[in-house]
Design a protein around this nucleic acid. Structure first.
Lengths: 197, 197, 197, 197
DNA sequence: AATGAATGAGATTTCATTCAT
DNA sequence: TATGAATGAAATCTCATTCAT
């Protein structure tokens, strides 16, 4: 019962952060939307920032977990395509968080540490996948990390543009993944040595 | 003379936004750092948000211009690699803006319109380059746009991680570009049909 | 309970507006005098102007009501004298408002609409009384309105000068009313019995 | 030449005070309308209030002078009517001041002394006229003053309502004066003893 | 646990006035 | 005399947080 209120506060905050951003959303907006009293807020959260961190932590944690589960393991075949596809699905299912994440930046001062940790976590998952697949046999550790970050940036901005800005629905996810997976191949043909180094 | 003060306000704001973010930075911080009086601020800017928009507009405009100039034209050879390389250079030279941009998100409510326009502009430049090179002959318009956005997201997050978080210096730019340009090739080789579409 | 604070804010504002005028009175003065916190003010009033309008509306409303009740009905006998007498009593009992009203003008930009409506309301009451008494049988509507306004102006300035500037007490009201009621007759008749007191 | 600027400042201020009131009008508005520089203002006036006082003093002085000249002397015949008529003409010709006067109240804190003195001056002129005409032979001094103030209040509010609110033009002045002069006569007939008491 | 009125520090913004040129 | 950029004190208003009930 008490937890009901906590949940409704989080729910309300999530919506408001999504629509207006963290700074524009007032505690009074949140409690009003949640249907609880002003003081109740502080029964469950130490401060407004505490709520934001709490939400960010849990949400980014969920995304990270989802990616961990969906983008690892026995993916040898069409590995990259499937990793992208699954990541897109995760972002699609967490559109709200995607919106908040992009609306506050990778380093919104309030949650800079959380968001940094988030990116690092995902990057490590992807790097490990690369190693598992033997994808880039002669890349150094640093290079693998760059490669991993590049995948994250790619998927994230595209997810944001497609799902949030242009409101693509679930039926487009596969074709988007195909574009992302195949996107370098043609270049390869034109200028083969490009990344060969 | 008068413009000196305007410049020092912008300079100070740029530094403070970079360090603390827009919301944490007070007008009083800015004028103090700029060495001008509180009222002087409002001689040059209608409001704090006006300053932010002004800065964002001009900075993102510069980046967009730089990318336009450096990533188009006769790039046939090693086109993608050179586009990535030049983009990284632009981001490196605009580290401050990169930091602010990422610190406030792709859609910081205050400058959402400006930043949306910025991404769209760059995307169009890249799409056009793709068309000029004949890079993805059988991609639809929507697919080309996705491809373009994917490049932007890739370069931007990597630039942020390398230049801002990890403080790589200018000597690494080329090798980062090589990783980004070549990053899919090996995948291609290992799991050839991956993105083949 | 909560309304206590609202009341004390109004009370304090009334005093301060009376003493120093609206523009000179700061919200901080009001809350200080009312013994509440700065923020409390905005719990009950949207703005300083909102408070002023609120006060003006309610006070002028009270005066208008008092005049309506006391200056109409079966007054045939000595009608004008009694109307003036009652109006003076109303103004005397609302000295504070009288002072504010005169201190801010008939058309203080902040409450111009309210004060205009106030004068119009009273004028209409008086015009109706004139009609009820058959006082000016061959006056046009416009002329009756002018006559009504003239009575208001007369009573108001005299009330201000006597009650506010010269601090006459309640015992003088009747004799003032006599002067005002009789003041024109003598002139008319060559002014023989003048103020026959 | 220098005085040109002084004049244009006064002119501009007069217009702006009339339209928006003293407090709403900024010095920057005035100098802008007057076409001079900000600093020039302080070459001619010590402060904004100084300008206001200066304007009020001169304008009210003009009205007082005009009333003095037009409402005294050999007016025996129809004395009251002619005094009212002339006063209305004075107010009509000084509509701007009338508007400012009413817009700021009889006792706008900034010019309270000036405006008090103004009313007192006019009152004395009228009282003297009453004495000259032998209008109210057995009125005490205090009663004569009340009578005089009543005339001022009457004319002023009617002038404001007719000339400012309803924009009557010069052709109506005479008929307004007739209404004001005759306004008590009919009452007299209906309830003869009215002021007798 | 729940309430919501009250708080007050602090932020943004305004604008009369000054002063170096 | 004239300028107008610069000033900074001060005012209004906001809102996260507290606390008595």
């Amino acid at each position: 019962m008490g937890e009901d209120k906590r949940e409704s506060i989080i729910e309300a905050a999530l919506r408001l952060f999504e629509d207006q951003g963290y700074h524009t959303t007032k505690v009074s907006d949140i409690v009003h939307k949640a249907g609880v009293a002003q003081g109740t807020f502080y029964l469950y959260f130490k401060s407004k920032e505490d709520l934001f961190r709490s939400i960010a932590e849990s949400c980014l944690g969920q995304i990270a977990d989802a990616i961990k589960q969906n983008c690892t393991g026995d993916m040898k075949e069409e590995a990259l395509y499937r990793m992208i596809l699954e990541s897109l699905r995760v972002y699609y299912n967490n559109k709200t968080i995607l919106k908040i994440l992009n609306g506050h930046g990778a380093a919104s001062t309030e949650i800079a540490d959380i968001s940094d940790a988030f990116y690092r976590t995902i990057m490590l998952v992807i790097k490990q996948s690369f190693l598992d697949w033997g994808a880039f046999p002669n890349y150094s550790d640093a290079q693998l990390e760059i490669a991993a970050y590049s995948k994250i940036g790619m998927v994230e901005l595209v997810a944001y543009q497609c799902f949030v800005v242009q409101n693509y629905d679930t039926t487009h996810i596969e074709s988007i993944a195909q574009v992302l997976a195949g996107v370098n191949a043609p270049c390869q043909l034109e200028s083969t040595e490009a990344g060969d180094k």
